[in-house]
Design a protein around this nucleic acid. Sequence first.
DNA 1: TTGAAAGCGCTAACAA
DNA 2: TTGTTAGCGCTTTCAA
Lengths: 340, 340
Amino acid sequence: MNIKEIAKTSGVSVATVSRVLNHPETVAPKTREKVLAIINELGYKPNWFARGLNFNKTDTIGLLIPSIQNPAYMEVAEGVEYIANSKGYTTLLCITEEDVEKERRYIQTLIDRRIDGIILVSSLLEDSDIQEIKKQNTAEVLIGENKGNSKIPIVRIDCFGAAHKAVKHLLNCGHRKIAMVYGSTPIMENNLKIKGYKLALKEAGFPINEDYLVEDENTIEGGYIAARKLLGLGDDRPDAIFATSDLLAFGVMDAIRDSNLSIAEDVAVMGFDNIRVSNLMVPKLTTVDKPLYRMGISGARLLLDVIESEDGIAMSEIILQAKLKIRKSCGHKERIKEIF
Amino acid sequence: MNIKEIAKTSGVSVATVSRVLNHPETVAPKTREKVLAIINELGYKPNWFARGLNFNKTDTIGLLIPSIQNPAYMEVAEGVEYIANSKGYTTLLCITEEDVEKERRYIQTLIDRRIDGIILVSSLLEDSDIQEIKKQNTAEVLIGENKGNSKIPIVRIDCFGAAHKAVKHLLNCGHRKIAMVYGSTPIMENNLKIKGYKLALKEAGFPINEDYLVEDENTIEGGYIAARKLLGLGDDRPDAIFATSDLLAFGVMDAIRDSNLSIAEDVAVMGFDNIRVSNLMVPKLTTVDKPLYRMGISGARLLLDVIESEDGIAMSEIILQAKLKIRKSCGHKERIKEIF
DNA sequence: TTGAAAGCGCTAACAA
DNA sequence: TTGTTAGCGCTTTCAA
């Protein structure tokens, strides 16, 4: 079923059929109706490739997400999907499994397929890769920190400040031996969180204990393993653990329970992300509320702006607010009184 | 950058360049190397649309998932992604938000784009829609129950049997007032689970109390709301709640806690899916272990078989095992002694 | 082993 | 308002 057949059965030329589809106002109402009727009747759908060959616009964007296991990324994806969909774009969701090579391959596939733009979430790409995409003439937006300091539109939060605030809160709760469990990805964000952690301790006059900085895979299991290490430190065991993601924090909580210790009482836990299940934990997880959905929304809007603006956008950086979400897992303010 | 330029700079015809790309063995080694070198040097990539126009094969499959909020579907998606990726296919992940209309629109978009096949997960589509896809000559596989009884390859579990087993286990634990919280989606699967629930009660000689069957949105919040209704029944309050998904079960657990009741002790909870976080709940959730990842794997394999088989596949139905995952939330066997 | 040219299905410039 | 026709970039048949 192609445009020729429609033309023939409607008794018009292919050009007219094409016009009915693309510029209906330029064709006489009677002809238009007739052609439309035939199109409907025969269930004709223009060939996507032939169309693309002429337009070179696909109304498709690519969304690269590090992991499907982490609900945090899924919340971002939800925001992107929502905007893209409401503006008539289709989203190609690609899971990079925190693997740079896979990320590169996906990007190449996407560009080959002439997608209109790409959103990279917490990308592991080098600056050169990011420049390369730009060179290939594909619109591009970043969500979350990235290695490059390229002039690419970006949406993010202040990871450094948020981590600093989080650790300060643990200090305010009376905790003194504060450890940190950080994921091996996303690298840039975690580095900033480490800096925030160190600064908070320094400001409070505490030394940095390198044994208190444990890295593992950014999963529940990773958090578990890291926490077991910390809890095995005997008398030096920390009384609070700051995790760089809620997923890690879940693993930390599990490890605390398995060590027959009490969460909050014996060891406080602070997460990062505020994914939906984090307040179903027992005790409810205190965490940094990262506006994941809104980051997706903003990122998608930004990308569509870039795509639809003729001359491109000079520069754009959106920094969203991350607030502390204080719940039960980090111990109570009351404890401060016990200590002082 | 197109094939013509490569031809010109290599001093050959476009036909030769095309051959180098598609049937390298048919071109003289020397010519081949020369052309390849130029292609590499100039970073030439064949135009996706022009290619598709000739081949009508996109190496792309569509995956329709009801919700991004439910990790259960994400685990299925992971399996599909894994297989598709390893066989060189790209997956277009579409979130239907449990909305049939959106599902239909996505399918149309996918077919328009000439994807090679579609996987529908817990689809809400009517039989006629499913037939329609088949008619449009697009390979199709279902994961989970569906309304139609069409001869479409399908991967599923025995929901009826699994629910029956689950409720029987609650009975064995000594619970007598067993309620059921079921999601409004996916419809077909939940209907089967309801049947399994009813049969188990009937076999045990208990009447069906329609007040004990509460429907709500298949989310944590839905589970919470439904459970609050059940717990507000005063003396008639159930001593066990079977939820049709872990997400619902999480909401149920939250509601029990908020009612100052004890999970397992006062009200047992049984989930369905065994998503990864279900054993992080306190107490750990007893649930039906649905082999989500494996369902994704099998579904993808099936679809690729259909795509790559010349004359199509007559029929195929894969039924995977679902086992009870007994943890703490449904009360202990010991209670049986207290009661008898 | 290679090249010329037709054709995939569509859009749009140009002509009528 | 409509039709004719030249491309879009590629693959492939046919001929050399």
